[in-house]
Design a protein around this nucleic acid. Structure first.
Lengths: 257, 257
DNA sequence: CGAAGCCTTGACTACATTCAACAGGCGTGG
DNA sequence: CCACGCCTGTTGAATGTAGTCAAGGCTTCG
């Protein structure tokens, strides 16, 4: 049985060493029956020497395969994670299976920062992703003793809260077209922040993920995308890429009826 | 011009002193032209001697009149607040005036805990409310030096995040009836936590507030309430009170189609 | 090449919104 | 004191946006 998570003994940026324990992507058609995460000990100390990130002292690096869970809602919250590469979706389920995606996390984002003892949502990889794992106990100790770490995580949490509040406005008060355009603008801003193009975006998640993020159905997402495409505002490119042909118009549409 | 905020020189629990500067409630028909907050210096040190809450050292007590703003989105975020009594609504507006209420805050809840330099939302009093004000600089210093305060505010923030995520599920994936029932159950749980009845609830906010909180229109809220009433699940009482006649059924309806 | 999954498109439905009218409560002022 | 206006909430009818059901195209991958 292929494990969902594999440990790499170096950070992805370091190219000299081979990545140990890397496994093939394993498509998962249902949300059930995913293999449990398996972790091996290790650290990123070599990288730490160059960057002096205090978190490196307690970090373990790992990869998560496409569509595999990092953790599930209700699991005991033993670890906090930071995404290093790839995209993670975080979501909650209703008893009857309806899903609401809380967010898509990319490099630099943190997950599992609950001060609860269980996770409040499920996290799965949209694409194969690399993450850093921090044992919760040790991270909490570090937060207590290190003001720099503390401020960083506080800022992360505050940002998460801001994002959540804006998403509430989107879900509660915006039309399908506005939702889509807001989503595109958010992707664009995140790409720009990471130094990538803000008009040629990578959109690795499927229609179903987008629908569950925006509170729509896949059909409505598809139709709305077609509509934007027909209007000449966007162009769909090869390999889950999308081009914003008229970013200003999209920005306008993102909060005007 | 009547000020929106008035300072009391004691905590509300202390009955011996008259509340200074108290003003009459001032109905406000539009969101515009509300008087700016005015603060006087003061503290709650007498109360602090009995409770040893470290926050008392930097706190100022004040009242906010019904429908008056505590602060507005975009204002310079100089203060953090804790609600002592009454209900506060926190919301964001779209350019065309559509409103999404992020939450209703009651005694013990904090507002303005952004790590931004401006507020991310507007806060208004639903009912006349008493709040404690903490200058942000001093609160931040206290957070840095006092682990107890730190943990408390961290817990508050984490709880806020949890609430926000559950609200996303509600807004994105629930029907009108489920939204209403979830809202009632939330009110019930909050009342129970405060030691009040969990079946006879105070619901001080109007239909318009409920609608903007649940992502509905006032008409839909009204119709859905009528429906629940007709089904014998709730009873509307005098003075903005509501009775949950069948809490179990309401709980069922809160996440089942 | 065939099967599976993802996306798109079409026709119909339904839930919530919009538009409109009206009832009740409350404070103001004649 | 009652009349009036204002605000809030309720109800009805018509509309519309997004959802549902269904079919077909396309890509991917074994």
């Amino acid at each position: 049985m292929a494990p969902a998570l594999a440990i790499a003994d170096t950070a992805p940026a370091a190219s000299s060493a081979t990545l140990g324990g890397m496994v093939q992507a394993r498509r998962q058609t249902a949300n059930i029956s995913a293999p449990p995460p398996s972790w091996a000990s290790g650290n990123a100390s070599r990288w730490a020497m160059h960057t002096s990130d205090p978190l490196d002292a307690i970090a373990t690096v790992a990869t998560v395969d496409r569509d595999c869970p990092l953790f599930r809602e209700g699991d005991h919250a033993d670890n906090v994670f930071e995404v290093m590469s790839g995209t993670i979706r975080v979501f909650k389920l209703l008893p009857d299976g309806r899903r609401q995606i809380i967010g898509f996390l990319e490099a630099g984002d943190f997950l599992g920062l609950s001060f609860n003892d269980t996770y409040l949502y499920t996290a799965e990889a949209v694409t194969t992703a690399a993450v850093r794992r921090f044992p919760r106990r040790r991270l909490e100790a570090l937060i207590d003793e290190n003001p720099v770490v503390r401020r960083r995580l506080l800022a992360v949490t505050a940002n998460e809260l801001l994002t959540a509040q804006e998403q509430m406005v989107l879900l509660g008060r915006k039309s399908a077209k506005e939702k889509l355009c807001t989503f595109l603008m958010t992707l664009s801003r995140k790409a720009a922040k990471r130094g990538l193009s803000d008009t040629r975006l990578s959109m690795p998640m499927g229609r179903s993920d987008i629908a569950d993020y925006l509170g729509l159905t896949i059909e409505t997402v598809s139709r709305t995308i077609t509509c934007l495409k027909t209007a000449g505002l966007i162009r769909l490119l090869e390999g889950h890429k999308i081009e914003l042909a008229d970013p200003d118009a999209i920005s306008e549409l993102s909060d005007a009826a």
